[in-house]
Amino acid sequence: MKPQLAEIWDWLDQVPDPEIPVISVVDLGIVREVKWAGNTLEVALTPTYSGCPATSIIALDVETALRERGVDAVRIRTQISPPWTTDWLSEKGRARLQEYGIAPPHPAGGPEKCPRCGGHTLTRISQFGSTPCKAHWRCDDCLEPFDYFKCI
């Protein structure tokens, strides 16, 4: 029997992002489509950044999670269009990033507040951070550096 797609989405929502394990690959917005093609489950994944080393790990993690649930015929498809955008991050994902100490993307082009103390006096240290998707910022209120998930 083929599991319902809603159930499969729930399973995928339990697959953590390998770099930022507090959010799932579904929260990240990279799972674009899940559908049955005959008895094969097709999953379309969109890479965040073209050179992101986590992309191949994510494909492997998704496939492993599905096999553990008994879905053996899985086809993972990489889909680059439309390109991934931080607009696809879920509300749950944004809230978890904030709790984890990573400021979620904000349309104004910089973090809204310090994820640690909530301060608003912020300075950008570098557009590039510890992973391709993050920039490096500092809070001038609590003086702590923090990661900002940059808009793309």
């Binding site: 050179g51 080393p53 570098s126 590039f128 951070g129």
Partner: peptide, 12 residues
């Protein structure tokens, strides 16, 4: 870090 990130984008 910035240079490594840029290199990674370009290789991707």
């Amino acid at each position: 870090i910035a240079l490594a990130n840029i290199a990674l984008d370009l290789i991707g």
